[in-house]
Amino acid sequence: MAAIDIEGVTKRFGDVTAVNDLDLTVPEGEAFGFLGPNGAGKSTTINMVLDFVRPTTGTVSVLGHDAQRHSLMVRRRTGVLPEGFDVYDRLTARQHVEFAIDSKEVDDDPVALLERVGLPDAVDRKAGGFSTGMRQRLALAMALVGQPDLLILDEPSSGLDPGGAKEMREIVREEVDRGATVFFSSHILGQVEAVCDQVAILRNGELVAQDTVEGLREAAGGEARLVVTLREPSAFDVGTVLALPEVSEATLDGDTLTVACADGAKTEVIAAVEDSGVGVSDFETAEESLEELFLEYTADDGEAMEVEP
C-alpha cells in the first residue's frame, strides 16, 4: 500500500490551474522529497492530501483511505507541519502540544516532545512571542504527537537557521528509521537531497521528474566537472581540450580551467592539458551538482529561477 496515492488530480481555482493531471505515488516507509519552485502547486497538493481543498478531478488516497471522504481517519495517523500556519499567541508551547495530544487521544509527554525539537526552555512561554523558527519547531512537535505513520512537512526549513535545518533533517531520519513515511516539500534542493530516498519535482502544477536521488544524478548525464589550476594560463588555448571527443564544455577564467566531460575522460583531459606545456598546479573533480539539474527542471523558458543556498 502506498502512503500517498494521487491519481489524475487537477485543481483549478477559478481559471487558474494550480495542479494539472498529477499522478504521484509515495511509497511507505521512506523519506520522499517534493520539490519545486514557489507557486509550483506543492502546497495545493498537500492541501488536497489533508482535505483543506478538494480536487476538481481525480482522487487522492492516503494510507489506504480516501483523502476526502475519510479525512479524519487520515489525519488520525498523520502528523502535519503546514505551510503558512500561525500559532495561538495566548497559549504556551505546552498547551499547544497538549492540544495535539488531546486531539489525537494519545498519552505523549509534551515536555519530551518539546525537548526533542529543541524548545526545552520555552515549554511554558506563550507562543505569541516566538520567532518564526521557534513556531516551526513548535508545529513540528505537534506533528510528532502520537507517532504518526505519515509525516507531512510543508517547507519545514523556512525560518530555521542552518543548525535548525540540520536538526530537522535528523528528526526526519529518525522518523523514517522508526518506520514512518516522511513527505517533505521544499523549494530548496539542498534540504531534500541529503535526507530523501526519492524525489518528485513539480513545475507549473505538473510533475516533471520522479526518481531516486541517484537516478536523478544519472539522468543529469553522469558528467564530471573538472577544475584545473594552470601555471601559465596565458599560454593555454581552450580549443585543445574542447577538441577532445568527450568534452562538452570548457571555460578558462584567470588561471582556472573548468571542464565538463564524461566521467571516464578525466585522465585524458588532464593529459591533454599537461601535453600543451602550460603546467598543472592543481586539479579537482566534482559531479555535476543536483542543484544544476534541479534548475534545469524547474527553470521557466530557459530562465533560471533563484535558488537560496
Partner: peptide, 17 residues
C-alpha cells in the same frame, strides 16, 4: 480569524472535522 491567520491549518491538521 483562524482561517485568515493560518492557525486553522494547525487545528485542522489534527483529527477534527
Amino acid at each position: 480569524g483562524e482561517r485568515e491567520s493560518g492557525s486553522l491549518k494547525l487545528l485542522l491538521s489534527l483529527p477534527h472535522s
